[in-house]
């Protein structure tokens, strides 16, 4: 089997995350060129974040300036680095890279999601754990509950947007966009009485209505993440 060089992941922030498995610029270049051949329209002028977690202390070997040039040459707009080995941070900054705060959700290729749940930080008292809406969420309205669940007792309209750190429950037709687990909580789920959503996402993994099996449209469903994939099941 061919050695894995890189991994491309789509996230809901509409940024592509490039996970590096190696520090060899030339190998990365070749792998990217190959990807580009497969989906050239996808890569052109896309903002990109480089995830260095898998490199660990090997990050020190990385030629940060060259990496940046490579990204631009391949057609990406480099946004910044994340999960970088601490000792390499100064090198990266010298090369003009921005450092992004580490994502809560760990990059662990081909391993099941962690069974142990540890609270990363003690929630402060002011944090809203639940947002209940008793009116329809209209087109153009955006409802954001960064650290809790959203419950809508009516429908949501096409062109509306629900964003929850936790889960989302809609007791009516779900027609707009809905993003659960926006802080990276892969345990978040979406429940609705009628699935007609334009877009559904949990912890950055998203699907459009067109991608949803037609037998599930209009049904009462639960949506959750299983092994990096969105699962939609009737309830």
């Amino acid at each position: 089997m061919k050695e894995q060089i890189i991994d491309l992941k789509g996230e809901m922030s509409l940024l592509t995350v490039l996970v590096l498995y190696t520090t060899q610029i030339q190998a990365i270049r070749e792998a990217l060129e190959e990807k580009k051949q497969q989906a050239s329209h996808f890569l052109v002028r896309s903002p990109i974040i480089i995830d260095c977690q898998l490199l660990g202390e090997r990050s020190l070997e990385l030629e940060f300036a060259e990496l940046k040039i490579l990204m631009t040459q391949v057609g990406f707009v480099p946004v910044g680095l994340r999960n970088l080995w601490e000792a390499a941070e100064a090198l990266a900054i010298d090369a003009g890279w921005a450092l992004l705060r580490p994502s809560k959700q760990q990059v662990t290729p081909n391993t099941p999601p962690p069974t142990e749940i540890t609270l990363e930080q003690e929630p402060s008292e002011a944090v809203q754990r639940l947002l209940v809406l008793d009116r329809p969420v209209r087109s153009g309205q955006q409802v954001y509950c960064p650290h809790g669940d959203i419950v809508v007792l009516q429908h949501t309209s096409a062109g509306s947007e629900l964003l929850a750190g936790g889960s989302v429950h809609v007791y009516g037709a779900l027609r707009g966009r809905v993003l659960a687990g926006v802080q990276g909580d892969t345990q978040a789920r979406i429940f609705c009485e009628r699935l007609e959503a334009e877009l559904i996402a949990i912890a950055g993994r998203y699907r459009l209505l067109d991608d949803i099996e037609s037998n599930l449209k209009g049904q009462a469903v639960m949506i959750y993440l299983e092994q990096e994939k969105l699962k939609i099941v009737p309830i």
Partner: peptide, 13 residues
């Protein structure tokens, strides 16, 4: 209908 829905949202806010 969609534009009316948008207006309803504005009427509420």
């Amino acid at each position: 209908v969609r534009d009316s829905d948008r207006i309803l949202g504005l009427l509420q806010s």
